[in-house]
Amino acid sequence: MRYEAPTTSKAAAELLAAEKGKAYVLAGGTDLLVRMKSGMLEPDLLVDIKQIAKMREISKTASGFRIGAAVPGVEIGEHKALGKAWPGVVEAAQLIGSDQVQGRCTIVGNLCNASPAADTVPALIAAGAKAAIVGPKGRRTLAVEKVVTGPGQTALAKAEIIEYISLPKRAPKSGDAYLRFIPRTEMDIAVVGAGVNLTLARGIIKSARVSLGAVAPTALLVADAAKAIIGSKLDDEALDKLAAACSAACKPINDKRGTIEYRTRVAGVLARRAALIAFERAGGKR
């Protein structure tokens, strides 16, 4: 196996493009090294992107925030402005693993690992985040919900790398939240995850995005759930409709982490709770 640590995105893409064997991008490595250890992956080339300065920073731009692909969770948590604007995204990022894992893990890694249970993905989808992709054929942008196409599969072509995730500029009177269910208090993979992002106008929900994790092969953007609360003050009826829409959208499996029945039900419970938090963060009053 060869290890390379280029200093530009272009060089990284070129290394990946030139490799004839199996090549992987190494960011935090918290998933990749586990798979290498178990023998599931045997890379011929690892391209470490942590030496690429641009990928190591969080920047505030006119159109929102950019979170570099190699920014570890702990730095996302420490970024005050980001936390103020997108508390749901930040809390989702902070839920990954332990403090030790936070020292390494990245949200782009979480996304590209393409697990249906990734914590940041529903939060990013709810936030309307986009992935900035660089590759041999140039740059492109893709909505986060389009990046993962199935368990372990992404829409990235060979040698394409996500450079950063962009979050839109925070509208006034808006808020987001992410909740997940795990059996313990820490260290588990989500059994169900729910992200809600909403904006108010005169106390009423004007727009909303609701996303669920771990209840289908990929994280879901549930339009019906958003519809259920748009135009409401998040009264109990709207919440019931939201929960029902979320449960209806679930296509989960039975596995070691949960049952179909359980996931379906708790998806509604969590979406309801996340909506209440997002609503409060937006300054809403029920």
């Binding site: 059996p183 313990r184 208090t185 820490e186 260290m187 588990d188 596995d255 070691k256």
Partner: peptide, 28 residues
């Protein structure tokens, strides 16, 4: 509350690691 060997129909152990064989952590 949480610890359990989980076997699949194929008779293989599905959770041979501390991630899914869930022993109590400090915050539990």
């Amino acid at each position: 509350l949480n610890e359990e060997y989980i076997y699949g129909d194929d008779g293989r152990l599905q959770n041979p690691g501390f991630l899914d064989y869930r022993i109590p952590v400090c915050s539990d």
